[in-house]
Design a protein around this nucleic acid. Structure first.
Lengths: 187, 187
DNA sequence: AGTTTGATGTGATCTATATCACACTAAGTT
DNA sequence: AACTTAGTGTGATATAGATCACATCAAACT
């Protein structure tokens, strides 16, 4: 159901059927089972991924083997290792599926081609990137300014639906708290 | 010396003299003394600012009066309260001058106009936003994964020139560490 | 059906960092 | 020249959260 991509783009700019068809022709589809990897550390990152169905996490594993979650992505979200993707370098993050997942894959080449061909797509991606930037600033502020409990509550408020689908252990790893501490935060 | 803006844009896309002149006509100039505010909390944020000369900080003040620095900006950097700027809402951050400063000011209206008129400017801003996104991810990872000393060293490595111009107290506030702790991190 | 694996809770410690308090120096102001 | 203000260092103490160690329960394999 790639309609969900169309809807996302049309929140920013209207499209004709033909235009959307053209856009879509630059994507491929990929299906993954729970626990399967989309990207592993040191892979060359070939694509940005738009989630049609399912749930994934992008995370960094440090030298002690501790995992820190950079982002989750469910339906209607984009996910990849952006540093590696934009710079065509090797992945620092791992990305794998928390649930069985279906994604649309966009190579950097096709992304740039689309942006060059269609001004409105470049506009779309600029707007998306701007929103993403602001969201990351919010997260940084939360890390700087708030304690574990406050961060938990902010996340709960911002993405309530996540909590039905993601185990607390992973929430803890996203928030930068140990799972034991998170478990003790009830109210 | 608006040439510095031109150079920044030309790192991404070439410009004719006429094009640059056209771009520049969408900016105004502003000069500020040390300690002067560019934006105060609850202001309507009218502009994005490109720093030609000087040094500023964008920071949040929490209910205890503690200040957390979101970003610094010296020559060749952009700064504003992006959340407020893009959404035309009131500022959450304060921005003031650490040094006497000169900036080029770009209203949202003019930014969008430029982006609509000149595909290459939209391209430029998309690229800048992408890089910014990646940089913020790096900072989040640093906050999640590293202790005070490691974060200090990472910052020192990434922006060595900052340390000549910014007092340690402010570095501490950027890193999310108390100034006392930062002061004890020597080596 | 039995067994491994994942998710979660909770007590007992440990530790990095915050906080409080004070001192010293340099720079800017009247 | 005296006085205020900003920047920095450092000791003593407090504390949020990490870590270690178990226990329980549910889900998923074999």
């Amino acid at each position: 159901m790639s309609e969900i991509l169309r809807q996302q783009i049309e929140k920013i700019t209207p499209l004709t059927d033909k235009e959307f068809e053209y856009i879509l022709s630059h994507f491929t589809t990929k299906k993954l089972k729970k626990h399967q990897f989309l990207i592993q550390e040191d892979d060359l990152v070939q694509h940005d991924y738009f989630v049609i169905k399912g749930l994934l996490k992008a995370y960094y594993i440090n030298h002690d083997g501790k995992e820190h979650i950079m982002q989750f992505a469910a339906e209607d979200w984009w996910i990849t290792d952006y540093q590696a993707y934009f710079n065509e370098t090797k992945a620092l993050f791992n990305i794998d599926c928390i649930e069985t997942t279906e994604v649309l894959c966009l190579s950097l080449y096709n992304r740039e081609k689309l942006c060059a061909d269609m001004h409105k797509i470049e506009h779309f991606f600029r707007k998306k990137s701007n929103s993403g930037y602001v969201a990351l600033q919010r997260r940084i502020l939360s890390l700087l300014n708030s304690n574990a409990k406050e961060r938990y509550e902010q996340l709960l408020q911002q993405y309530p639906s996540l909590f039905q689908r993601v185990p607390k252990t992973l929430i803890a790893s996203y928030l930068g708290v140990s799972r034991e501490t998170l478990s003790r935060l009830s109210t």
